[in-house]
């Protein structure tokens, strides 16, 4: 985490003084982007850097669903299953992905390539069903399209 401190310093410049606590969430996001998850040593580093109570960081990590403390597969396949997506075939799509990847939501394939997750509404209901592959939205998905999407990945 230490190597990110220059970036954190830049980020801090646009916050008012006394907003150190606010940096917890953006720093954790940045750490996760960097490492793929937030390690215990990152928590220690962040606590020392920001001077916030450790328990605050632990609470935040457990509260926000995007943050994680364990590594996952190289490709994170997150499929929306809220109302609008389900109305346009998300449930069938999830079944398809389960079979295709051979894992249940929340699990990672044995080769460490894919982690399958279900998520609630991604704010893209007009182009349902939606699959989020790592950071990017893929909209109007179908079994065929998802096959094509995942087919080309390492």
């Amino acid at each position: 985490m230490r190597h990110l401190i220059p970036e954190f310093e830049k980020m801090k410049a646009r916050y008012p003084a006394g907003f150190e606590s606010s940096l917890v969430l953006p720093c954790l996001r940045r750490i996760q982007d960097d490492r793929g998850f937030v390690a215990d040593s990152d928590i220690d580093g962040l606590v020392a850097y920001l001077g916030v109570p450790r328990v605050q960081v632990e609470e935040v990590l457990s509260f926000y669903t995007q943050l994680r403390r364990k590594p996952i597969g190289r490709w994170h396949v997150q499929t929306c299953r809220n109302v609008s997506c389900s109305m346009r075939g998300a449930e069938r799509l999830i079944d398809h992905l389960r079979k295709k990847l051979g894992v249940a939501p929340g699990e990672t394939t044995a080769d460490g390539r894919f982690t399958l997750s279900t998520v609630e509404c991604l704010g893209s209901c007009g182009t349902a069903p939606v699959v989020m592959l790592n950071d990017a939205y893929h909209e109007n998905m179908s079994a065929e399209k998802v096959d094509a999407l995942l087919g080309g990945l390492e």
Binding site: Y15, L25, Y64
Partner: peptide
Amino acid sequence: VVYRGAGS
């Protein structure tokens, strides 16, 4: 500041 949430 553009502040990003994290899933909530």
